[in-house]
Write a protein that binds this DNA or RNA. Structure first.
Lengths: 319, 319
DNA sequence: TTGTATGCGTTATCAC
DNA sequence: GTGATAACGCATACAA
């Protein structure tokens, strides 16, 4: 130990952790001794006494979908601000796998952030009881959560289509069992019906380009607009429609419920929902930090998602 | 502690860690007691005695560029196989920041994987001396490294262009100070010259879509083909050329030195280099694990990058 | 302001 | 096969 500085380890520890609890002169000596020896504090030992590892676990369903990159980036930034690091794991949309990962991460981290579209409410509740837990894009009871309000955003998007005159709108839905997808479906159906319009649900479908192509052939004839669960489905739809000779937006309008950057570079650019995922990531880490330090009881935060209107949506032909 | 099972903690520990060193009956009792109490081993305490945290640090320059996603995914998978977790941090291409992150991660992790296009050789050498370190896409002395052989792949790509008949080829280069970029430039210039052709270097440029657009206007008149440092530059070039009324590949051929998925969905699809980044990530973790467990002295592994020929490359007009 | 002593939860050593 | 017991390296309560 750095009693190269000629002090007790207690003083050394203080000099590095609580510089103000020690005489300036000794602080300097310790500092220098530490440098000279290339002293590296042992995180494990510190964690053992303090009960804090300074690590936060982050479980995402996948990293293949660039959709999640901003979330990780945002979380990363906030983690830095709280002097902690991120332990990232990937569940592959598998509830069992996710549970195993969460268990293992719990041993190492001070708390967990989970974006878990699958996975049972009960399991999450139980997990939240044991250790600090923040959910992302999902609400379970009174568990702390940060959600991007895609439902409200989607409502705006729907309103936009309705205002354009669309009355038969296809919703190309996402993976089976997705919590978010169910919320959206319910909202769309109800809201459309209130406005005297109809939602034609296709799916559930895997949220992929190929599934979008297939869906493009299955769109009901009546539909003058299609709303896709995500960008990949939208890109597939665009491609499929193009191949089939149906023009967007002349023959059919198209919009997506999330907004990967490619959507703005297609022909035509696709109307989409800007989901503030980076902010979600940042906020989730902040919340978890509050939870860990016990600074505050936190509940659900809701970040608005806003439609980005592009050239792929226009009034239906019949008008 | 789980002496709910009526055994000493020593036995309890053994029952859970070395099941074969304990009588089957007691193993069961301990097991059950652990379940009942929801016992969670404390990773910090274990790390303190064993000297292993089971964590690996991974520092990437950015996560905004989907280029790195496969790397993380590959690393993730391999980490799972070695029973370890990944601590991921982002350097933002900032050497100073990177150094700070590396220092902090070193305290927590058993070793580090760094993909560091910037950052000085000397600093990396020193770091490699202190703790297990694996470099990605970079070689520094005899430090263990895993590199995707984009230089060799690019040579193939160049050969392809030469075989098509191109003699004046623009290389739209990447960020200033990039290790990989320099390697490429040198190879291209030398190899082209050997074949009686010329490389026109544009840049250094930020590896972005917008920079690609600008570069498209700056291409030398003589150039019948352009090779871009990465997909974003290639997409920008494609866009810029399209706007300017120059057709790809009729007027000019285009290729990229990496291969984001969008390149295959453009019009025309863009010839590119398939960089096996996922395999790189996997191998890097495997190497680091070997290093940590001392199973093997490892040096540089080189994974081949192969050209994917698409419609954006064709013989030059003049032929 | 500084030093001494204790404990964090686990594994390793050495008896039994 | 099992049980005491001593580390591991740090932070703190308490004493000086």
């Amino acid at each position: 130990m750095a009693r190269e500085a000629g002090v007790s380890k207690a003083t050394a520890s203080r000099a590095l952790q609580r510089p103000d609890m020690v005489a300036e002169a000794t602080r300097q000596r310790v500092q220098e001794a530490a440098e000279r020896l290339g002293f590296q504090p042992n995180a494990a030992a510190r964690a053992l006494t303090t009960g804090r590892t300074g690590l936060m676990g982050l479980i995402v369903p996948t990293l293949s979908n660039p959709f999640f990159a901003p979330l990780v980036i945002g979380a990363q930034q906030a983690a830095e601000d709280t002097e902690s690091h991120l332990l990232i794991a990937v569940s592959e949309y598998d509830a069992e796998r996710e549970a195993a990962l969460a268990d293992r991460l719990s041993e190492q981290a001070d708390g967990l952030i989970m974006v878990t579209p699958v996975g049972s409410d009960a399991a999450l509740r139980e997990r939240g009881r044991r250790r600090p837990l923040v959910l992302v894009d999902r609400q379970v009871g009174r568990l702390p959560a940060v959600v991007a309000d895609t439902v409200a955003g989607l409502a705006e998007l729907l309103d936009h289509l309705l205002a354009l005159g669309h009355r038969d709108i296809a919703y190309v839905s996402g993976p089976a069992g997705s919590w978010a997808d169910e919320q959206r479906r319910a909202m769309l159906t109800a809201r459309a019906s209130d406005a005297g319009a109809r939602i034609h649900v296709l799916g559930p479908l895997p949220p992929t380009f190929d599934a979008g192509i297939e869906a493009s052939a299955a769109l009901p004839d009546a539909a003058t607009a299609a709303l896709a669960y995500n960008s990949y489905l939208a890109l597939g739809l665009l491609h499929g429609l193009g191949v089939a000779g149906r023009r967007v937006p002349e023959d059919i309008s198209l919009a997506a419920a999330d907004d990967l950057s490619t959507l703005s570079a297609t022909t035509p650019p696709v109307t989409a929902l800007d989901v503030p995922l980076q902010a979600v990531g940042t906020l989730a880490v902040t919340r978890l930090h509050e939870l860990i330090t016990g600074h505050r009881r936190t509940v659900t935060s809701r970040l608005p998602a806003a439609p980005v209107l592009r050239a792929s949506t226009a009034p239906p032909r019949s008008l």
